[in-house]
């Protein structure tokens, strides 16, 4: 048992302001949720492109990332020992995400084991491995999709309740997948040629940039609470993370380096830099969008008024 914490004092301050920021999904334990979302997105994207390009190292990396993302999700939960109860996938996108991760980890294991170990009871051409392949793809699709919908179904935070957000998260997950493959390519030096992945990374990076701007444009024309979130993102308490992490490192650097690489030869170090910057951007888009979330005020504020809350 502890004394009244700074968290309590923070809550009391938050209850006094009109635009109360959400903190549960970004601060303290909440940061694990962002890490979990980030890793599961990159995992799904990496799995997708590794299957497409037949890169076994990428498949293994995707599986490891998904497993770590599961641990991050557990670390976020207030009662992690009850995680197995999350099966109510009828309406809840969180439950769907849990089902997706379960399918991905189960199917991925069935598919990967014979690829890497020759003494497994089933071969990579067996029914078991093929089933694992399709199960993992089903899980991958859910992992690509569910995060955006988790946010979009949060009615209390208008900045998130947009159909554009799931599309944005899918785009970033795919970009994270390409970035992870580029990173593997730079580290291992074998497998694919980056001439094939470079243009893909550039194209997805540009698409992501367009989607970010489109999303912000739409939300800045939405209701006052969403506009306030956009304000927090571009000029308020989230601005530094947004400009440095999301825009400069996450979008500008990979796009500029990618364009420079497209114009001439590109070194391994540059490939790694593009990949790392893209991955950092993938994390920060999730971090900044979550942090900019603001709850709907309980009632519209009349002119010349100030709100207080008892505690």
């Amino acid at each position: 048992m502890t004394a009244i914490s700074g968290r309590y004092e923070q809550l009391i301050q938050d209850l006094k302001v009109e635009y109360r920021p959400q903190r549960e999904w970004i601060e303290r334990q909440g940061l694990f949720l962002i890490v979990g979302h980030f890793l599961s997105g990159v995992a799904a994207g990496t799995w997708f492109f590794s299957l497409a390009f037949g890169l076994h190292a990428g498949l293994a990396a995707a599986y490891a990332l998904a497993a770590v993302s599961g641990l991050a999700h557990l670390a976020f939960l207030g009662r992690p020992e009850r995680f197995w109860k999350m099966w109510r996938a009828r309406n809840s996108w969180i439950a769907r995400g849990f089902v997706g991760l379960t399918l991905f980890l189960t199917g991925g294991l069935l598919y990967l084991l014979p690829l890497f170990f020759s003494n497994t009871p089933w071969s990579s051409a067996s029914f078991m491995a093929k089933s694992g392949y399709y199960i993992s793809i089903a899980g991958m699709i859910i992992l690509l999709l569910y995060k955006g919908f988790v946010y979009a179904s949060s009615k209390g935070v208008p900045f998130w309740t947009s159909p554009i957000l799931p599309a944005l998260y899918v785009a970033y997950a795919l970009r994270g997948g390409v970035a992870a493959l580029l990173l593997i390519l730079a580290l291992t030096g074998d497998g694919l040629s980056h001439e094939r992945l470079g243009p893909l990374e550039l194209w997805i990076g540009l698409s992501a940039a367009v989607m970010v701007l489109f999303y912000l444009g739409v939300m800045s024309g939405a209701n006052p609470v969403a506009r306030r979130s956009v304000y927090e993102l571009v000029r308020g308490r989230v601005a530094v993370s947004f400009y440095v992490g999301t825009l400069i490192v996450g979008l500008a650097v990979p796009i500029v380096l990618g364009l420079a690489g497209a114009a001439g030869s590109i070194s391994t170090v540059t490939v790694a830099a593009i990949a790392l910057a893209s991955v950092v951007g993938d994390f920060f888009i999730k971090y900044t969008i979550a942090k900019a979330g603001i709850y709907i005020p309980l009632r519209p504020r009349p002119a010349h008024s100030r709100v207080a809350a008892g505690h």
Partner: peptide, 16 residues
Amino acid sequence: EKCVGCRACMMACPYT
């Protein structure tokens, strides 16, 4: 007894 502490309900409640 069923709550896992995911706090999705807190984000969904429009009345906080």
